[in-house]
C-alpha cells in the first residue's frame, strides 16, 4: 500500500530520516507499546503511508518548530477542513519535522474508540480518548496532547466562515492548570480549501441528530497547500488554580484564541497560490 501511494505520487519515504526518528522514539517507548494502545511499529507504518500525502499532496510546510522544546505541551490548534485532516497533518509534522520528534496524542470523541478497526488503528497511531482524566494521565507521564478547543464547530463551518476561529471551550485550560504543562498555540492555514465549497445544513443535522451535515458539490479532498504555524508558548499563570471561576479563566482562553486568530491572519497573507483560495475568507 505504502509502495502504491509512493509510486503513485512518485515519491519515496526518507528511510534514513525515519530510522533516526523512530530510534529516538524507541527510547521514549522502550516496550514499543504504551498503556493507551500506541504501537510504535504501526505508528511508523501509518506515518509512512501519510508522508507522501503530507509532503507532496498537501505540500505541508511547518513554521516555528524552534518554539518546541524537549518537554510536554498541550498543543492547542484551530480546527479546519471538514474531516479533521488537519489533525493528521499536525501529528505528522510533530513526528517528522519537530525536534525532538514526538507522537502528539490527539484526542478523539467517545464513539470513535468503539469503531471496529478504525478505533484500534487510531489508538495504535497515538490517538487517545478525549476524556479529561485520561489526558491528565498522559500529560503527567510526559506526553504531549493535541486539542481542538473549538470541537466539532471548528470543522463544521460553511465556506463563508472559513478561518473564523470559533469559541473555545475551557476544558483544555483547566487541564493545563492541573498538570502544569504549558500551552503551545498552533494555527493551520490552507486546510479549509481542501473542501472549498461547503454549506452547513444545520437544520438537516439537527433533524437527523448528526454533529454536522456539510452540503458540497465535492467530497474529495483537494490538494490545497497547508501551512502549520507553531506559535510561542503560552505560559500557565501561577495565580490560577484548576478550580478558579470561569471569569478568571476566560480572559486567558480568549488570549490564546486571539493569538491563534492572529497567526491565521498572518498565515493567510503568506499562503501559496491555489485556485480555491478565492472562495474562502480572504483577509
Amino acid at each position: 500500500m505504502s509502495n502504491f501511494i509512493s509510486n503513485f505520487l512518485d515519491i519515496n519515504v526518507p528511510k534514513d530520516q525515519f530510522d533516526q526518528i523512530f530510534d529516538h522514539l524507541k527510547q521514549v517507548y522502550p516496550d514499543g507499546e504504551d498503556p493507551w494502545g500506541l504501537n510504535l511499529k504501526k505508528t511508523r507504518r501509518s506515518i509512512e503511508y501519510v508522508w507522501p500525502i503530507y509532503k507532496h499532496y498537501f505540500k505541508t510546510r511547518v513554521f516555528g518548530a524552534e518554539n518546541v522544546e524537549n518537554k510536554p505541551y498541550l498543543v492547542v490548534s484551530n480546527h479546519t477542513g471538514q474531516i479533521a485532516i488537519d489533525g493528521m497533518l499536525i501529528c505528522t509534522a510533530f513526528a517528522t519535522e519537530v525536534f525532538p520528534p514526538r507522537i502528539l496524542r490527539s484526542m478523539v470523541e467517545r464513539f470513535f474508540t468503539s469503531i471496529p478497526y478504525l478505533g484500534t488503528w487510531a489508538a495504535e497511531g497515538g490517538a487517545v480518548l478525549g476524556d479529561r482524566q485520561n489526558c491528565l494521565n498522559l500529560l503527567q507521564r510526559g506526553q504531549s496532547i493535541l486539542a481542538f478547543p473549538e470541537g466539532v464547530k471548528g470543522i463544521s463551518k460553511s465556506t463563508t466562515d472559513y478561518y473564523k476561529v470559533q469559541r473555545f471551550t475551557r476544558g483544555f485550560f483547566r487541564m493545563a492548570l492541573t498538570s502544569g504543562v504549558d500551552i503551545l498555540p498552533l494555527a493551520t492555514v490552507g486546510a479549509e480549501e481542501i473542501f472549498p465549497w461547503v454549506y452547513q445544513a444545520k437544520g438537516l443535522a439537527k433533524l437527523f441528530n448528526l454533529p454536522a451535515a456539510p452540503i458540497s458539490p465535492l467530497y474529495l479532498p483537494l490538494p490545497s497547500p497547508v501551512d502549520i504555524y507553531i506559535g510561542e508558548v503560552y505560559k500557565i499563570p501561577t495565580d490560577l488554580s484548576p478550580e478558579s471561576p470561569d471569569e478568571l479563566i476566560d480572559p486567558h482562553v480568549e488570549k490564546i484564541r486571539d493569538q491563534i486568530q492572529e497567526m491565521i491572519r498572518k498565515g493567510l497573507e503568506n499562503r501559496r497560490p491555489f485556485f480555491a483560495n478565492r472562495y474562502g475568507r480572504r483577509e
Binding site: 493507551w36 467517545r110 474508540t113 468503539s114 487517545v128 480518548l129 476524556d131 494521565n137
Partner: peptide, 9 residues
C-alpha cells in the same frame, strides 16, 4: 468499555 479512561482509579 470502549470509553474507559486509561489508569482507572
Amino acid at each position: 468499555l470502549s470509553d474507559n479512561p486509561v489508569f482507572i482509579s
